[in-house]
Simulated scan of single mutants.
Amino acid sequence: MEKYGNKNGDSGISGFEIGSNYILIEFSTGSVYEYTYTSAGESNIEAMKRLAISGSGLNGFINTYVKFRYSRKIR
């Protein structure tokens, strides 16, 4: 899991892992969710990847567009 940059200092996300058609998001609570092309849509996943790499805006994007559209909760 790669550490999320959290440039604004107020994110609920602590880490992420990017795959070809998915992204894993680790929240500061320790929970990890998998979002996939199938569950959240290709354009949303690609946007999440860009935001994760940039270290800013990912938590807001998730809350606005894909909050419950994860494929599975890993932990």
Rank of each mutant, 00 (worst) to 15 (best):
7 K>I: 13
50 R>C: 06
20 S>G: 07
1 M>T: 13
17 E>T: 14
42 E>D: 10
75 R>S: 15
5 G>V: 08
71 S>P: 00
36 T>I: 11
61 F>L: 04
39 S>W: 04
74 I>F: 08
72 R>L: 05
29 T>D: 15
23 I>S: 03
58 L>S: 08
67 K>R: 15
50 R>W: 00
29 T>G: 04
4 Y>A: 11
31 S>L: 12
14 S>K: 13
59 N>I: 06
29 T>F: 07
68 F>P: 00
21 N>A: 03
46 E>W: 04
31 S>K: 14
72 R>K: 15
53 I>P: 00
5 G>Q: 07
19 G>W: 05
9 G>K: 02
11 S>Y: 02
47 A>C: 10
54 S>H: 11
55 G>L: 07
19 G>R: 14
11 S>H: 02
22 Y>M: 13
3 K>G: 02
67 K>T: 03
71 S>L: 12
5 G>S: 01
14 S>W: 03
45 I>P: 00
72 R>H: 03
47 A>G: 00
68 F>Q: 13
1 M>R: 07
35 Y>C: 05
68 F>T: 13
53 I>N: 08
73 K>H: 10
54 S>G: 04
12 G>L: 10
56 S>Q: 12
42 E>A: 11
41 G>A: 09
56 S>V: 10
23 I>H: 01
25 I>V: 15
67 K>W: 04
6 N>G: 04
32 V>F: 06
41 G>K: 02
35 Y>K: 04
45 I>M: 04
29 T>V: 10
47 A>Q: 14
28 S>M: 11
52 A>L: 08
51 L>S: 09
7 K>Q: 12
8 N>I: 05
74 I>M: 10
4 Y>D: 12
26 E>P: 01
39 S>L: 06
63 N>W: 04
49 K>Q: 10
61 F>E: 05
32 V>N: 05
24 L>K: 15
9 G>N: 03
19 G>V: 02
64 T>I: 06
67 K>F: 12
9 G>R: 02
22 Y>D: 09
21 N>M: 03
27 F>G: 03
54 S>L: 09
37 Y>E: 05
2 E>H: 12
44 N>R: 02
72 R>I: 02
28 S>N: 13
63 N>K: 12
9 G>C: 00
62 I>D: 01
62 I>N: 01
19 G>Y: 14
13 I>D: 03
21 N>D: 15
61 F>M: 01
2 E>L: 06
58 L>I: 09
61 F>H: 13
23 I>W: 01
57 G>A: 10
45 I>K: 02
